[in-house]
């Protein structure tokens, strides 16, 4: 964690402002919402504590909530994925195993591991956000389409951002 603290702070500021100022204004195909700030939460090292991760998730998501005018919805989804993240990471172990103090990004463990790790978490996040926001299962197929398309778009942006701006493996 300490090794990457500067990098994490910079990526927090940049990704949050990107999310709030730029990506909030884009809706792809009328159903795809990119949540690029999830990259910050997903890139936490494997040995960062439960509580730290959840509190960071809460803080980021509440900032996003304030701008999306959906107070609490993104927050609950982010806290949930930060809670299941360590358990999920134990299931999808990369071939070489985890290294302590290493960011969980493509640069550290490779693209195939990252996709398997990030895609279900992002999908869980989108499902919670859209189902809580809709408030009912009345438009089940519409909501699930929203969640699916948004997760794919979020994943694409999250992967490309890493290829463009994140440090390569050492």
């Amino acid at each position: 964690m300490s090794k990457h603290i500067v990098f994490l702070v910079i990526s927090f500021v940049l990704l949050m402002s990107l999310q709030v100022l730029v990506f909030r204004n884009f809706v792809f195909l009328q159903v795809g919402f990119p949540f690029i700030y999830l990259l910050f939460l997903l890139s936490f090292p494997v040995d960062s504590g439960f509580t730290t991760a959840m509190v960071f998730g809460l803080i980021c998501a509440i900032i996003v909530d304030l701008f999306y005018q959906t107070l609490g919805i993104h927050a609950s989804a982010a806290v949930f994925i930060m809670f299941i993240r360590p358990t999920w990471m134990k299931i999808v172990v990369p071939r070489s195993g985890y290294e302590s103090n290493e960011l969980s990004t493509i640069g550290s463990y490779g693209i195939s591991w990252f996709l398997g790790y990030a895609a279900p978490l992002i999908f869980a996040y989108c499902c919670i956000v859209f189902f809580v926001e809709a408030g009912s299962a009345q438009f089940f197929w519409h909501t699930i389409t929203k969640a699916l398309v948004s997760s794919v778009i979020t994943l694409v942006f999250v992967v490309f951002t890493q290829y463009l701006f994140y440090p390569k493996s050492n």
Binding site: F50, T51, M54, V55, L58, I62, D65, T70, L71, G72, I73, A75, S76, V79, F80, F83, P86, V132, G135
Partner: peptide, 22 residues
């Protein structure tokens, strides 16, 4: 189970926000 209890606490906080906002 401190992680789980922290999770519950934070999640209740979020639900409270959602309900109040609703």
């Amino acid at each position: 189970f401190r992680a789980f209890f922290t999770f519950l606490l934070l999640e209740f906080f979020c639900i409270w926000l959602i309900v109040r906002h609703n």
